[in-house]
Design a binder for these strands. Structure first.
Lengths: 155, 155
DNA sequence: ATTACAAAAGTGTATATACACTTAAAATAT
DNA sequence: ATATTTTAAGTGTATATACACTTTTGTAAT
């Protein structure tokens, strides 16, 4: 019997919950996203949006395509995810100077303030996971997550 | 300086990409989901949908709420995710006998066939990740993912 | 028995995600 | 210089996700 046997008995089926990489990654994403959303709720932005502000702060001004690559995210997904932040005036997206096809994302003052307001709550969420999981295990998991991204992209 | 310092300088911002649990989990989910979707595409179902078939096979007939709990998923999310599978006739959702409020999910013959068709492709995806990441590291990551779910729910 | 409460599920709305397709602009080939 | 190709981005559509709110039905209190 191979490692992931195609035999379809009940035992095999219930085993998938323990062995399936995509299921377990998505499940963990749901659980952890929920925690971060709860903790960061008072800040008025979602963790996913917070990420976009932080990345823009760190790497901006940056084009949509290059930021999408940075985030390992489909470009069209990023385009859509930018919308609420543009609407709220936290990010600015303007046509590139050199290349008129491209559009450059940059942080507004309001966006910076919003980010600074959310930062301590993000930190609180980080600390809670750190304490509940243990620093060593969290670091190890983050390491493995980075590795699995590379693995999935090269496989 | 505390572990996740609230100081908002550039270094701190770019560090978030390496330390943020929710960002890295979501990023890995995107990358691994993409791989599984590519490999499983010939089967005609998505990995998320495959999961629902497998869980129904293993635990069904089961109510919506209890399956949602099993999957660490919001009940209303599951309700919505069942729709395409019901529409395609892969799952059946009928009112419970005892409790008329509840609705029970069960696999149809077509659903079982669909699952059996997708199973070898799921296996192929598992093997690819297994090989690219290494068995030991994959097992460790799955272990840590289970732990982080508990951590997030108890934190 | 009636009232009050609790539990199961559905709906409205919003964000997150990505593929297929299209449009516009830059780069290259001839 | 024009034609071809490549590249950056947007749109249509579909699934995934979850909160707030509502409806229906079962249970408990009186």
């Amino acid at each position: 019997m191979t490692k992931y046997d195609t035999t379809c008995d009940l035992g095999q089926c219930s085993l998938i919950g323990q062995t399936c990489a995509v299921f377990n990654l998505r499940k963990a994403s749901r659980a952890v996203t929920k925690l971060y959303e709860e903790i960061m709720k008072p800040s008025g932005i979602l963790p996913t949006q917070f990420t976009l502000l932080v990345v823009t702060r760190a790497f901006g001004p940056v084009t949509i395509s290059s930021m999408a690559e940075l985030l390992v995210m489909d470009r069209t997904t990023l385009t859509r995810n930018l919308k609420p932040l543009e609407r709220e005036g936290l990010l600015r997206v303007v046509a590139g100077k050199d290349d008129k096809r491209s559009r450059e994302i940059s942080l507004t003052n309001k966006g910076l303030e919003q980010m600074e307001e959310a930062l301590p709550l993000w930190q609180e969420a980080q600390c809670r996971i750190d304490q509940a999981l243990g620093s060593a295990r969290l670091d190890r998991m983050l390491d493995d997550l980075t590795a699995v991204v590379s693995a999935a992209r090269s496989a």
